[in-house]
Design a protein around this nucleic acid. Structure first.
Ligand SMILES: [Zn+2]
Ligand SMILES: [Zn+2]
Ligand SMILES: [Zn+2]
Ligand SMILES: [Zn+2]
Ligand SMILES: [Zn+2]
Ligand SMILES: [Zn+2]
Length: 1212
DNA sequence: GAGTTTGAAACT
DNA sequence: CAGTTTCAAACTC
């Protein structure tokens, strides 16, 4: 029992650390670290620990709270074990085991017994898995490794068994079997591997801990393990074991590096592995808890529970774990366990590895942690657990909470399959979750821990002692829980490498910076086992890695989230049932298998050990883990559950009790599968006893929203679906951070109506469900923004429709932010009413883009078609907008454009825009001439063969290219560098009022978007764009596409600063540029945007200068312009509005492509906003420092000329 | 170990 | 949620 507690504590710690979101757990963890050990705590242990473990962290860990204490103790133990060396162990053992153990055991026994019994049966079967090593022993001093195997198997395994049994008996009754295995394993290990383990001696103490292997899964249970060694302590041992494991895991990380000692876990059974993994994630705790129970399921439950308890919310994915166990297969266990840990582990690991996910994190994290404070944490946790076990336990429920932190994110999938595989093979294991930890170090640590676990199971590595093995990565499965993802992402920790798992990726071209790379996807750095080429996924390239990750996350917030969601986890959020079959987990996005029938690892569902769900689009699915139909029903349930969950989530905390109930229910479910283990409960009890006891596996919820805890309900199902749905509801993932942050001024809050919703949990971990899609922003909740509207009065406030729309558009324009006009839209600002005169809205900004809202005078300018274009061309933009300079055109103009459309629609739309007239229309043989095109082309239609078309279009395939329009460069474009530039300028502007000056916009997409936005409010002969030299080519494909034709209709002048000055002088324009408030030097040139300022500028002719994405305003700009700073509140409001609006758009009429673009737009805006908010040096440039060669205007021209030359004969 | 298959990622 | 291409793992021999 104690052990369990300890474990729980550890877990909690881990979780806490890992889980960013969970404040509670975190807190505890933190405390632990920070606080000095509680006096209360067991001194003996502590002292013990202290003495034993070299590691400081442990000590620190001890903090004070009871819980903490537990943790600490746990940590301690683990630490000791880990680090430890044998000697320590011995000492510890003696101390711990005896004293503490007794206590623990007793407690646990009580608790567990009930559960245990249940479990035991199952457990026996189930468990086998691993062996952990160590730690536990230490605590107990003895503990040593634990190997858990699942029940049945174990016993056999090792000689140790015998000992174990004894322990078991005493300690954890039920588990005996398992323990046995564990024991045996251990013993074997010890014997065999002793070295590493350090001798685990069972008896003595020492156990080393390090190496425990778990063989199977689940069950870590190990309680048994304890038996092994030394240990004796039965119940305690289990706990210890568990803790150990967790500790080990942690230790691994850390230790691995340092000591090595780590533990190895071998998970034999897949399930075990899975469990482990899950546990890892947060699971560690769980496992502890579970230990008692034995069965793997139990573990789950525990885990889940733990998570729930702890976190609550947060979560991690943990859960996900899922199920793996389910199956368990376990079987196996490997006896091997006996085998040297390393060996086994390795193999397993490898086996697992493959696809599994990697834990990467784990390793990293651990390391980091070790090194850093984080390390401490982890240690502490680990140790703490053990110690806790020893000592504490008592109470501490808290620990469980801690766990949560752990959640990992694993990317990996679940492991189930792996597990299974593992089962099959020894390896199996796989699953390890990655742990990515969340961002935080802690998270990392945690995750790492998680990974370890997984790995352990898998083989991962972990191994502590051995490092050799490697640890590496694990794969894991992980699933992570909820979490969200991202945040955690993790960093890879620093680390070095970690090793982790054995082999890992072998990327040749992705530089390990794409999701193709398993290491990168898992959130871990590449390490020695990797055979990648040109790898940049190394700690030394941390910046690159992190920035790349951000970009990818921007694109898909869930990119680094675990792919497999465990039902159990879901439980948290959703919940799931543990019982469920193994398959409680489901792949988040589902697979799309065509030829593998979901029976090969090509299938991510299969690989993850989960059945296919409704999210899968697979054909002829024969997934052995479950096919879609089955899943469906589950999903439905899930759905329901989700709803509940969500609700529950909010109330979770409040409803702990309820949860408890729920948990219990869950437990039942769980129990079915596996016996549950009550012991955990105890530990969990600290957090929430109920949960533990129940064992609900459910998971923590977290998922969702963050924190939430999940609903406890246990629904079994789980589901990802639900999740997804849930996500819908909320999430704003995409919202800029700023918005989310609380810090935002009060205004913001008020403004946003939904504030609540918007702010997702911080953590976010929860990922939003939405995500399914990945990209959409969400908005459900965000209605319009009140503030803008608002304010009041009724009046018009907003007009809403139009005004809002207009606003949105306006906002969209990055430069607009800087623009005073924005204020016009608001009815009031800063408490003062803003006068809104429709007539003044002329400013470009104000105009709504929607046709309906367009001022009449612009009706003819703004093409309704734009909308259509979006829709129609959205998916084929590339084709539709692919333009080239027209070679055939006359020299002077030289600038012809080819518009080739992949489809009639696209082509037609382009023409409709009325860009320039089409000089010639090239159609594929046999294609019909679209009516409108015919008119536009003036009858100049040429039919060409597919070959020619292909050549001209420059596209790989002509299938979608039905027509290419050859047109002249728009007359509105003039390059002052050219001969006749001047004339063009005069022609374009009779009296410019608003010119958007773009200084160094390097990204074509951004440039196009800016032009497009300006065009929406374009006033003929009054507005235009001036491109300074550093800008990319506005006719670049990407720019054209982004501009949706706007660049063909808006005056675009390309010139240098001298030209700009001439222009400004000639028309008496005033130059304005946005500037970060902070940077203002107080000079008279800096103004704060205010109603008065806006009013005063309304009638003036202005040049708005927008700096580059990466470098902000150039020196010249700053010198030449009046700087306008926008108060943060305003910016926030604008941003909020923008995002809301964009979301709305995407939800309504935007095609996928457009949606993607929207994302980019948001990104662009965010960047620009940042430039206003931060000093240039802080800006994070998302693009190259300079315009890429191929995007440079002149180069483009050269390229074009060359192309023209090459194709001269084509045109004849 | 080389070559093929496969389906997710990435890109347009 | 489009159509292709790229990529690296999974699988095959
Ligand atoms: Zn790689
Ligand atoms: Zn790698
Ligand atoms: Zn690499
Ligand atoms: Zn599939
Ligand atoms: Zn599937
Ligand atoms: Zn399938």
């Amino acid at each position: 029992m104690r052990v369990r507690f300890a474990l729980d504590l550890l877990i909690h710690l881990v979780l806490e650390t890992s889980a960013p979101s969970c404040s509670c757990s975190v807190v505890s963890a933190v405390k632990i670290h920070a606080y000095p050990p509680a006096a209360g705590r067991d001194s003996p242990l502590f002292s013990f620990i202290d003495s034993l473990s070299p590691i400081e962290p442990l000590k620190s860990a001890y903090s004070g709270n009871g819980l903490q204490a537990y943790h600490q103790s746990l940590n301690v133990t683990s630490v000791s074990s880990i680090f430890t060396s044998p000697h320590h162990n011995a000492h510890k053992e003696s101390k711990l085991s005896k004293g503490s153990f007794a206590d623990y055991t007793e407690n646990e026994l009580c608790m567990e017994e009930g559960t245990d019994k249940n479990k035991s049966p199952t457990s026996s079967t189930a468990v086998r898995l691993f062996a952990c090593t160590s730690t536990i022993t230490r605590e107990s001093h003895t503990m040593t490794t634990c190997s858990v195997n699942e029940g049945i198997v174990d016993p056999p395994k090792g000689p140790n068994d015998l000992p174990q049994p004894g322990r078991f008996d005493s300690g954890s009754p039920d588990h005996n079997t398992a323990p046995c295995h564990g024991v045996s394993v251990r013993s074997d290990l010890k014997q065999d591997k002793c070295p590493k383990l350090e001798a685990v001696q069972t008896t003595n103490n020492t156990v080393e801990k390090r190496k425990c292997l778990f063989s199977t899964d689940m069950q870590l249970q190990d309680g048994c393990q304890p038996a092994k060694e030394n240990n004796e302590v039965m119940g305690c041992e289990w706990d210890d074991l568990v803790s150990v494991t967790s500790g080990e895991l942690l230790a691994f990380d850390s230790s691995m590096d340092q000591h090595h000692t780590g533990v190895q876990l071998a998970v034999n059974n897949a399930e075990s592995c899975g469990y482990l993994l899950s546990k890892l994630a947060g699971g560690a705790d769980i496992s502890d808890r579970t230990h008692p129970t034995t069965s793997s399921q139990a573990y789950y439950h525990e885990m889940v529970v733990g998570e729930d308890k702890t976190e609550n919310g947060q979560l991690f994915p943990e859960d996900k774990k899922t199920i793996l166990s389910e199956e368990i297969q376990d079987n196996i266990n490997e006896e091997n366990a006996c085998i040297p840990l390393g060996c086994k582990v390795e193999t397993q690991q490898r086996g697992v590895r493959r696809r599994c996910l990697v834990f990467e994190a784990a390793g990293y994290s651990h390391r980091t942690v070790q090194k850093e404070s984080a390390g401490d944490l982890s240690f502490s946790t680990c140790k703490g657990k053990s110690s806790a076990q020893n000592h504490r336990n008592p109470g501490k429920t808290p620990s469980p909470h801690v766990f949560r932190g752990i959640g990992l994110h694993l990317n990996a999938l679940a492991l189930t399959s792996k597990d299974k595989m593992a089962c099959q093979d020894p390896l199996a294991t796989a699953l390890v979750p990655s742990l990515k930890t969340e961002q935080d170090v802690h998270g990392n640590l945690l995750s790492a821990g998680g990974n370890f676990f997984h790995s352990g199971s898998g083989s991962l590595d972990l191994q502590m002692d051995n490092d050799d093995c490697s640890v590496g990565g694990f794969l894991g499965n992980d699933h992570n829980s909820s979490q969200s993802s991202s945040p955690p992402k993790k960093r890879r920790k620093s680390d070095n490498g970690d090793d982790d798992s054995c082999k890992r990726c072998s990327c040749k071209k992705s530089k390990c910076l794409k999701l193709y790379c398993e290491c990168f996807a898992a959130g871990v750095y590449c390490s020695e086992p990797c055979s990648c080429q040109g790898c940049l996924n190394k700690p030394i390239h941390e910046e690159i890695v992190l920035s790349t990750r951000k970009q990818i996350e921007f694109r898909n917030p869930l990119a680094f989230a675990p792919k497999v969601i465990r039902m159990s986890e879901a439980g948290q959020e959703t919940q799931e049932d543990p019982k469920n079959t193994p398959a409680s987990a489901r792949h988040k996005r589902g697979c799309n298998c065509k030829k593998s029938s979901c029976l090969k690892k090509y299938c991510e569902c299969y690989q993850g050990g989960v059945g296919c769900s409704n999210n899968c689009r697979c054909e002829t699915c024969k997934n052995t883990f479950g096919t879609r139909d089955v899943a469906v029903s589950a999903e439905n349930e899930e759905m329901k559950q989700e709803g509940e969950q969500t609700e529950s989530c909010e109330k979770e905390k409040e409803n702990d009790q309820q949860k408890a109930n729920v948990h219990s229910e869950d437990h039942k479910l769980v129990e079915l599968v596996v016996p549950i283990t009550p012991p955990l409960d105890v530990s969990s009890s600290l957090l929430k006893q109920p949960n533990f006891s129940n064992a609900k596996p459910p998971r923590p919820c977290k998922a969702r929203s963050g924190s939430s805890s999940r609903s406890s309900k246990a629904s079994v199902t789980v589901q990802s679906r639900k999740i997804s749905k849930v996500g819908d509801s909320v999430f704003i993932e995409e919202m800029p951070d700023i918005l989310r942050e609380p810090s935002s001024p009060g205004i913001v809050k008020t403004c946003s109506p939904n504030g609540k919703r918007v702010s997702p949990p911080h953590n976010a971990l929860s990922i939003s469900p939405n995500r399914k899609g990945g990209r959409k922003l969400i908005l459900k909740s965000i209605p319009s923004f009140p503030s803008l509207v608002g304010d009041t009065n009724g009046g018009s406030a907003i007009c809403s429709s139009d005004s809002t729309t207009a606003l949105a558009l306006v906002v969209a324009e990055a430069y607009l932010y800087v623009c005073p006009w924005n204020q016009v839209h608001r009815k009031s600002w800063a408490g003062q009413p803003i006068i809104r005169d429709r007539s003044t809205t002329c400013s470009p900004i104000m105009k709504p883009c929607e046709v309906t809202n367009l001022p009449e005078k612009n009706e003819h300018l703004i093409r309704h078609d734009i909308k259509m274009i979006c829709v129609v061309c959205g998916t084929y933009l590339r084709l539709a907008m692919h333009l080239f300079h027209d070679p055939s055109s006359c020299r002077k103009a030289q600038d012809g454009l080819y518009a080739n459309g992949s489809s009639q629609f696209a082509t037609r739309e382009i023409c409709r825009l009325g860009f320039a007239a089409i000089d010639c229309l090239l159609l594929l043989d046999g294609a019909e001439v679209p009516g409108e095109l015919h008119e536009l082309s003036g009858g100049n239609v040429v039919y060409v063969s597919a070959t020619v078309m292909k050549k001209i279009s420059g596209m790989q395939s002509v299938d979608s290219t039905e027509a290419i329009a050859v047109m002249h460069m728009p007359k509105h474009f003039c390059d002052l560098g050219d001969d006749e530039g001047g004339a063009g300028l005069d022609a374009s502007f009779q009296s410019p009022k608003r010119i958007l000056v773009l200084d160094g916009i390097q990204d074509p997409g951004n440039l196009g978007t800016l032009i497009s936005n300006l065009f929406k409010t374009y006033v003929i002969s009054k507005d235009g764009v001036f491109l300074l030299p550093a800008c990319c080519d506005p006719f670049n494909e990407k720019a054209l596409r982004a501009a949706r034709g706007a660049s063909l209709q808006l005056p675009i002048i390309s010139g240098n600063w001298c030209d700009l000055h001439d222009l400004v002088t000639r028309y008496g324009m005033k130059m304005l540029a946005g500037h970060p408030e902070s940077s203002s030097d107080g000079s008279e040139k800096t103004h704060v945007l205010s109603k008065e300022l806006a009013d005063s500028l309304m009638s003036e002719s202005l040049c708005l200068v927008l700096g580059s994405e990466g470098n902000g305003l150039s020196e010249e700009t700053v010198q030449a312009c009046d700087l306008v700073s926008i108060p943060m509140e305003v910016l926030l409001i604008l941003q909020y509005v923008l995002v809301a609006r964009l979301n709305q758009w995407s939800a309504t009429r935007m095609s996928p492509y457009e949606t993607a673009k929207t994302d980019k737009m948001v990104q662009t805006i965010s960047l620009i906003l940042q430039s206003h908010l931060c000093s240039p040096s802080h800006l994070q440039s998302h693009s190259r420092p300079t315009v890429a060669p191929w995007n440079r205007i002149h180069n483009r021209r050269a390229t074009y000329d060359a192309w023209t030359h090459d194709n001269a004969n084509v045109f004849k």
